[in-house]
Design a binder for these strands. Structure first.
Lengths: 219, 219
DNA sequence: GAATGTGAAGGTTTTCACAGCA
DNA sequence: TGCTGTGAAAACCTTCACATTC
């Protein structure tokens, strides 16, 4: 249940690659692989074998020399490192466009992120039902977040109001926020904030096409 | 209209930060700022002033010593670098959960990405209307993509079928793909592929909470 | 023999620090 | 004086290469 404690600061890229490894290990498990080598994992992620081994080495020695990694074992290990070996109680704020799509996004639940509360400020939406969850009034945020023991919030509200909502969320004691609004939010240092900027990758594509920018090749 | 040609390979991070600068410059413009310093830009993005100046320096000298950058001028410059100073004709494939949300996502259009074609393989969806666009049969992909002069595709189909669809998209001559399915796709080297993995940032949050991983502080 | 785990090397990105200019 | 633009230094991240283990 508790994660391996890392000795030194782990880079963001390493964590993101763990997510990739996790996904691929789940797939390999379904394909009935017993073991997998760093070479095979690397090939599937378009990385180098050394990169895979180095990433894992920050957290321990999970492989067997001459053989590789046990697929199921490594998957469980990464689950524990990422902290997705538990049920996260998540609230989603803003049941609009993006918000409604996220409620039904099965990938979240598959990784242990359970959206169990919905909030909105629109009277027409409050009381309505989305995938079995009744939308609450944003005014009751603090009370309901505490009652439901929520530890993460997904923010899918318009950019113009998101800072106000974040302030409320922080007041309610939540320390992890995933923000979908294209805006830079202020949070106290003890609150974890990540942004999901869906235009960014389109802009990267646009840049790549206009500048004929080839992807970085590994090896 | 054409982008400044960069002398050396530009890093992915630099391009992503240009997206951030662009967003903030748009905001500063609305707030009637005439000029902005690297210090102020950095503060808003939680970066260092040196980082901002270095990023921009790869593409030219856009500032005035002692004064800073002209907000509107720099914004136009970044538009041109990112290639969002034009209208991109985009097709969206998969009008499900995520797909329907993306059709209505105004941020895309604001940056020049115009979704003008929708495709699905579900007979119940084909012919239906989303934001004024009639959903086409995926079988007509190649023909319609060519007729409509589409240059980018957003893929919002289930992971299980996405590789087949990508193959069709590539056959239709599209060279830029944004994939929302949590899966590693194969494309020929001349096709630009980017992945939007919405679970990744939640997993990062989970990791950060469990490991008490503070965000990297600039400066 | 095969593949991991890891110091050391190599490469890339960020930050420093200051010359140069408005 | 104030702030940019940029070589050089520092920090960080990736790859190499090999001793080690099964």
């Amino acid at each position: 249940m508790s994660a391996t404690i890392a000795r030194k600061r782990i880079s963001e890229s390493t964590i993101h690659r763990l997510s990739l490894y996790y996904r691929t290990l789940s797939l390999l498990e379904k394909e009935n692989y017993e073991t997998v080598s760093s070479k095979e994992l690397a090939k599937r992620e378009k990385l180098t074998p050394a990169q895979v081994r180095k990433d894992l080495s920050f957290f321990g020695s999970f492989g067997t020399r001459g053989l590789g990694y046990n697929v199921n074992e490594l998957k469980l290990k990464i689950e524990s490192i990422l902290g997705i070996d538990r049920e996260w109680r998540v609230a989603l704020i803003g049941v609009g466009n993006i918000g409604s799509a996220l409620v039904s996004y099965k990938e979240f639940a598959r990784q242990g992120f359970h959206i169990i509360k919905l909030f909105d400020n629109d009277q027409r939406k409050i009381g309505s039902n989305h995938k079995g969850i009744v939308v609450s009034d944003i005014k009751d945020l603090e009370k309901e977040v505490k009652e439901a023991n929520i530890s993460m919030v997904i923010l899918a509200v318009p950019a113009t109001v998101s800072q106000y909502i974040v302030d409320d969320v922080v007041k309610a004691g939540v320390t992890a926020i995933l923000n979908f609004a294209p805006v830079n939010l202020r949070v106290p240092p003890f609150v974890h904030l990540r942004n999901e900027n869906m235009s960014m990758e389109l802009e990267y594509l646009s840049f790549a096409m206009v500048n004929n920018h080839a992807p970085k090749k590994p090896k």
